[in-house]
Design a binder for these strands. Sequence first.
DNA 1: AACAATTATATTGCGCACAATTGAAATTTG
DNA 2: CAAATTTCAATTGTGCGCAATATAATTGTT
Lengths: 152, 152
Amino acid sequence: MVRKLSTLDPQRLDNQICFAIYSAAHAFNRVYKPLLDRLGLTYPQYLVMLVLWERDDVPLKDIGEKLFLDSGTLTPLLKRLEAAHLVKRTRSREDERQVLIALTPQGHALKDKARSVPQSILAASDCSVSELVAMKDEIVALRDRLNAVIAE
Amino acid sequence: MVRKLSTLDPQRLDNQICFAIYSAAHAFNRVYKPLLDRLGLTYPQYLVMLVLWERDDVPLKDIGEKLFLDSGTLTPLLKRLEAAHLVKRTRSREDERQVLIALTPQGHALKDKARSVPQSILAASDCSVSELVAMKDEIVALRDRLNAVIAE
DNA sequence: AACAATTATATTGCGCACAATTGAAATTTG
DNA sequence: CAAATTTCAATTGTGCGCAATATAATTGTT
């Protein structure tokens, strides 16, 4: 059986899963862009809103743990969401270190306007839900193994 | 058969393949970071070097097509690589619009120092090469379908 | 209670990404 | 050939993402 050497070379760009993931993330971002523009959100801001639509009035820290982001990223992002009147930031009474993030009425209302987004993404993905779910589960498992190595 | 509603809700963070890819990309980046620090490269710079190690003296445009990046990203990145004495940027004689990117001797030499990187990534991924190749191929196919939609 | 260590957020600085614009060179077209 | 169009790179401005650092609140220890 003949096999081109290049398909085995681990130093080739096209053989690297990380580049596949890196470039797929950018491709997704470009598909999301026009959909999220209509909501006035960037993709990371949309992720924060997804978290808040599941559970409101959460500490910044919890959002960071769900999205794997730190305060250096979230603090300015949340200030922009507050400036857009979508969230309110308040210091926790019980623990003055914590900042609690709560949705405004506009923030709540945006959930409905965003309901069509996943459908549009599914259409652009051009494959079945079950295939996407299978891929997602594999990628999440890989991500968690990588994060386990980092945490060591 | 009982199934929790939440596992079907497309507006839930954990059900979104895009977030899986987004967060996996960041996890990879964090694994690469200490490895690339030793080479004095960021991950996007490493990608550019991978392209150049395959074929030298290429126009900026070609690098952009391979990595799905535009001049707004690549121009300053390549200037930093030039400042690090890894590449040289020259205007093409035949077409004065183009900038050709060529490796310096140091740029060439770095390829050997970088040879152990893919092995370290494989170890951190903690799964077989064949599994990774299968995932990579699926993700690339998805990415290409997304890019096809964008190009419309 | 006093002191040390930990935790949560904010800030600064750097390097992407990318949209939008500019300017120069090359190509196409009338 | 001249004008219009296209192509390529550079620039500007905005928003992440993260390391490093700072600060204040809380917890743990003696």
